[in-house]
Amino acid sequence: MEKDEKYKLKKVLLICSKGTIEDVYAALVMGNGAVMEGIECKLFFTFFGMDAIKKDTMNKLHTSTVGNPAMKMPGNLPFPTWLGGIPGIEAGVSAMMRKEMEKLDIPNVDEFLELIVAGGGEIYACKLAADMFGIKKEDLHDDVKAIITVGDLYEMCDGPGTQIIFT
């Protein structure tokens, strides 16, 4: 009958499909956390997540200031959507957010990728998204191992104790 066995997590595949600061860092923190625990880790970037591995955008990610009900102004005041739409506001808020993260010793995106790769993690880009946005391998950060298809991706997910996480 049913056995109550625990299986240790051995491998994680993290898929990042969005390009906001919070989506990208969720994937990076979890990826780095995995390699630091000795868990095999593969990070796969697709669609707008490609911004996180493109040399020209990776360290300039934004957070969205419109349509984000959890966004607050300093002093925990509500942040109205109409304010977020004013030109320059999103860039300013995003720069402020990155500065706050730096204070907590959270690395920039490129440095974070380097740390993950140093720990044995692997970074991949999605072929379909690359074709769609006209992105080439040389547009991507050097730590990106390859541009791969969804089939290649699933081939990497073999073995017991593997989890796929979509952010």
């Binding site: 390699v35 630091m36 625990e37 000795g38 380097e114 740390l115 140093a118 720990g119 044995g120």
Partner: peptide
Amino acid sequence: DAKSFYQMFPGAP
């Protein structure tokens, strides 16, 4: 550096 650190304390450095 991070890479050697991972090699010196393999698993969970």
